[in-house]
């Protein structure tokens, strides 16, 4: 039942996104121009350390930008309609999965841009891709929850940044640690600890979202 609702809601989100292409285009352009600006600003002095930090910080900003609209995109009346036909858990899970898709695409695109403009710094590609996927998942779940919280207040956008930056730090630092390993050498063993932490954070956030979102959904 939950599964079917989630599937239908994700389908709805994808169709909506394809219909209003300008939103998606806006995010894509934001990503491209941010990467380009940093490329120009940093010229050629890209060490693996700065490459790594820049990559994740840009991804964070892109994520905040892309996900902040999650709960304010449609008219309030439409949300009341969803409220009557779907369970809140289905709504939040569908949003998280949909945003995961969005973040995965954006992070791969961002990676591609980095390769193109700043050269390849990644040694252990499998580990880096794994970090990208788990990172997209974590970013999408935390930012979806924060977007839901911020959507209930006025002054939505700056609130989104203020609320999300401090609580996203455990995720972001763990991600940076893993991808620093992927940049510095081909070995895996050192990465298991941070990977376990990453999976734990993701699980905790999903459980919290599942439990807490109903309170945000109904008035």
């Amino acid at each position: 039942m939950l599964f079917r609702e989630v599937k239908a809601l994700i389908g709805k989100d994808i169709r909506l996104e394809l219909k209003q292409k300008y939103v998606l285009n806006g995010i894509l352009l934001y990503l491209l121009s941010t990467v380009f600006v940093t490329y120009l600003a940093f010229e050629e002095v890209i060490t693996p350390e700065t490459w790594n930090s820049l990559f994740w910080i840009i991804l964070l900003f892109v994520g905040v930008n892309g996900i902040s609209k999650s709960f304010v995109q449609e008219s309030p009346a439409r949300y009341i309609y969803y409220y009557t036909i779907a369970s809140p858990q289905a709504v939040v899970l569908s949003k998280i999965l949909y945003n995961l898709l969005l973040m995965a695409i954006l992070s791969l695109l961002s990676f591609g841009m980095f390769l193109l403009l700043m050269g390849n710094q990644v040694v252990n590609l499998e580990l880096f891709i794994l970090a990208l996927f788990l990172g997209s998942f974590g970013l999408s779940s935390i930012l979806t929850m924060v977007a839901a919280i911020a959507s209930r207040a006025s002054n939505n956008f700056s609130l989104m940044a203020v609320l999300s930056f401090p609580i996203i730090l455990p995720l972001l630092l763990t991600l940076m640690k893993i991808s620093r390993m992927a940049l510095s050498g081909p070995e895996w063993p050192g990465a298991t600890g941070p990977l376990v932490i990453l999976v734990t954070i993701n699980l905790a956030v999903i459980i919290l979202a599942y439990l807490l979102f109903p309170y945000l959904w109904r008035d």
């Binding site: 207040a153 609580i167 763990t174 600890g193 734990t200 954070i201 309170y215 945000l216």
Partner: peptide, 25 residues
């Protein structure tokens, strides 16, 4: 009250994670 309680619970748990994870990282 409701929205800030949700944020408080969510953020506090992530903060605890942060404090526990940080020394290890």
């Amino acid at each position: 009250a409701k929205v800030s309680a949700v944020f408080n619970i969510f953020a506090f748990i992530l903060w605890i994670v942060f404090v526990m994870v940080l020394p290890r990282l």
